[in-house]
């Protein structure tokens, strides 16, 4: 579905992504884990067209999307839930959802958009209660739901999620992750998930990649990564403490 080949991305002179290659299959949940500053968000922003890679190729469903502008890439069926939610605070929840469907036009689109809004309310009942409220006045977890629902309103084939658990209470985090799993199971949405919360991400993902200072270091099934000693030590906090005595 999505294939990245030898992607190199720079911020000015800083080489952020170094020969990153990965692939995501139809209907998979794939996690990308790594520390702060490893290049996780840059990787998502490169896929979304917010930063252009200096070299390499990105293709989605067979068509080359390298270097396309961000709004074109949404039309290609890739939608991102950005880090820190980035919802439209002064607009109502409903307006945020409607803007999510901004690029869906044509005959019958209005009806399908209304159906999808109903679907979002079903998935996140809290948003239905608060549909007329300004999105900026919602709690962090609710804002994250708005961000996910807004991204889904473009009816994407591939959903990119940047740190959906950031700054949220553990209970809200599991609610969000359950919603993501349900998306894949019920709507066959492919999900690429970036997380610092590696344990949570690998619990729901089918496969994972580990990124360190801009390079992909490990890849494999979630089970494999959870059992890999290197990954455990660096990201899962299962370091065996030396005993002094």
């Amino acid at each position: 579905m999505l294939i990245l080949k030898n992607i190199n991305t720079f911020y000015g002179d800083i080489h952020v992504l170094k020969n990153v290659s990965l692939h995501i299959g139809q209907g998979e949940i794939v996690a990308l884990i790594g520390a702060n500053g490893a290049g996780k968000s840059t990787l998502l922003n490169t896929i979304s067209g917010i930063v252009a890679p200096r070299s390499g190729r990105i293709s989605c469903g067979g068509s080359d999307i390298t270097g396309m502008s961000a709004d074109r890439i949404v039309r290609e069926g890739i939608s991102q839930v950005p880090e820190g939610r980035q919802i439209f605070g002064p607009l109502s929840v409903l307006d945020n959802l409607r803007l999510g469907a901004y690029c869906r036009r044509g005959s019958g689109a209005a009806q399908r958009i209304d159906d999808d809004i109903a679907l979002m309310y079903e998935m996140f009942p809290r948003l239905h209660e608060r549909r007329e409220q300004l999105a900026g006045t919602l709690s962090g977890g609710e804002q994250q739901m708005v961000a996910i629902a807004r991204a889904l309103m473009s009816a994407p084939r591939l959903l990119l999620l940047d740190e959906p658990s950031m700054g949220l209470a553990p209970m809200v985090v599991s609610e969000i992750f359950r919603a993501i799993a349900r998306l894949r199971d019920q709507h066959a949405t492919t999900v690429f998930l970036v997380e610092q919360n590696a344990k949570m991400a690998l619990k729901y993902a089918d496969r994972g990649y580990v990124i360190e200072t801009g390079k992909i270091m490990f890849e494999g099934s979630s089970q494999y990564l959870l059992e890999n000693h290197e990954v455990q030590r660096a990201y899962l906090g299962r370091q065996k403490k030396p005993i002094w005595e």
């Binding site: 961000a70 949404v74 439209f88």
Partner: peptide, 17 residues
């Protein structure tokens, strides 16, 4: 209005800024 609030997020929902 979305563009004025957050142009990057606006482009991520498919708005041609």
């Amino acid at each position: 209005r979305a563009c004025s609030v957050n142009p990057v997020a606006a482009s991520l929902v498919g708005i041609n800024v």
